[in-house]
Design a protein around this nucleic acid. Sequence first.
DNA 1: CTGAAAGCGCTTACAG
DNA 2: CTGAAAGCGCTTACAG
Lengths: 345, 345
Amino acid sequence: MSTIKDVANLAGVSAGTVSIILNGKAAERKISSKTQERVLDAVKELNYHPNISARKLRSQYVSNNPTIALYWASDARVNLMARFLKGLLNATIQLKSNFDIIICPYKNDFLYLENGLKQRNIYNAAIIANTSISDMKYLENTVPKIPVVLFNRFSDKYCAVHVDNYKMGVESALLFSKMGHKNAAIMLAKSVYLAMDVRNKGFMETCKKSGIQILPENIIISDNTIKGGVEAAGKFIKLDNPPRALFCNSDNIALGALHVFNKKGIKVPEDVEIIAVGMSSAENTEFSNPPLTVINIPMEEMATSCIKIISDIIDHDVEKPTSVLFDTPMIIRDSCGNKYKATWK
Amino acid sequence: MSTIKDVANLAGVSAGTVSIILNGKAAERKISSKTQERVLDAVKELNYHPNISARKLRSQYVSNNPTIALYWASDARVNLMARFLKGLLNATIQLKSNFDIIICPYKNDFLYLENGLKQRNIYNAAIIANTSISDMKYLENTVPKIPVVLFNRFSDKYCAVHVDNYKMGVESALLFSKMGHKNAAIMLAKSVYLAMDVRNKGFMETCKKSGIQILPENIIISDNTIKGGVEAAGKFIKLDNPPRALFCNSDNIALGALHVFNKKGIKVPEDVEIIAVGMSSAENTEFSNPPLTVINIPMEEMATSCIKIISDIIDHDVEKPTSVLFDTPMIIRDSCGNKYKATWK
DNA sequence: CTGAAAGCGCTTACAG
DNA sequence: CTGAAAGCGCTTACAG
């Protein structure tokens, strides 16, 4: 990286002159056009671009906002990011935008490569989202140089904003049980994320306890996309005895399944009842045909909470790791449990 | 804002000592625990947080990435942001992540309050998205201190990545005309954005030329949300003679309308044909019931293009404002024009 | 155990 | 018309 001095040397002028020209004050300071030309040529030749840190430091009238890194797995569902960012924007507006939020895409399982966590001179703090199992292992065994808040994950060691994934599975199984089901199917997003596995576990273990059978062939694995749901439903309808209860650990999958069911004349909830985990925008499941019963993960509120914790940390108001557990309310709609709507807690 | 010197003074030590303690090297340097305590107390009392710019400047082993501001209207559709960010992440990964992207939420009509454009010491360059009419006016009449790329807008004065909104409306009208329609309805997102108005104009003017009538009562205005579409459809079905051709200037609205039509037993495309402008994630319209015919705005590719232009600007490879116009292909699906699928360009 | 000083890359008031 | 120098807030090698 070349500096203003390099440019000055190449152009045969002083650094101050280069600065004046680059800041558009050449006319005002009556710099000769020849000098200007030489300087601009040198800038191009050296591919010089100014060091913003130095500029900021020097020109102090600029408010110096704390810089927050948002580590987001680049292959994670983008819809989630949208909901997250919505909450985050709300928070920054509420808190009068006192932070610079920098988006740091990372590859799952490779969080350990990120320098921002290892050095204290890049960001003031970090929010880490979508960690894989091995990313979490890395975090458990390292000491980041900056304060960290985990999004949608939990650890004793860190501040965390999370939900009870196991409970989501449990409640879905309980509702199916209440509806009298003895068999269930499950569509799973294949995933490097812990959270989804825990959901499945909660569902399956509670089914077992409640006398609901889940045959191995009724466990269908797919991508966490609408298309993935379409493919999963293709397998589902070919089953010999398709269960009349279906749990989807992501609403994308459920929307894809719904598409296929509608096309094939399979009626929801008459022929099959569906419960999904609400990860993407609430509107999508609220106005599907039929509207889907979902367990809603309040992404926006969780994001806001993240920012508030970060804000407290930066103000030195956090003594030790604190975590916030968000409730995940079951939103009963037409696809399952409508007759219990009034009584379901 | 307090500095390390303030902390040092209050604690009665030198700035160097404070730095050592704050960087976790107290043990290694055998700083007495009393001193450490005094310093940490002072940090808290002054609510000190380190100036990242100064840290970066001093510790040069940190790569000094150019900082790009992403100005995004905070009330704009979040789904759009998701698609945009997807393209942006792809680009940063492709280009080996040579940029720091800072999210700068702004309020529509108030872009002129943003300091980042007026000073050259905050960001190296900016992408501006979702400008309102008055924001555009501001941009036309000002000279930003940093390079700017407009997203989904056009101006002679700036680099821009955009689409032909008028043409979208024209092509929709032409397809309806080809299908033999003589009447059409239109559901419009009420909007501060220019782009949407231009679409409507293109549609309406071409309808007129093609002998398609749009009665005033067949122009329905709603929010650019699925719920908005639900409400608009509520009005639509109460019309005395609802047209059999419906243009929605956003796919959100179309999805909401579809929800209502399905519920009321109105068949698409038999009873009414729909064309929508595809702004949110492609999957949503691909797997609706029925799948929607859309004019797709390639948000992801446009975002990637933005980053590439920014990259060229920073490398001094852009002489004067360049703009990239993206094609918006009509994707024919079941909701309209299926019989022309093969022949439609 | 702690301090004084140099220097990161810039900008700007001042001098000539 | 242009240059030399100070200084923004930090960190670190060095001195004691």
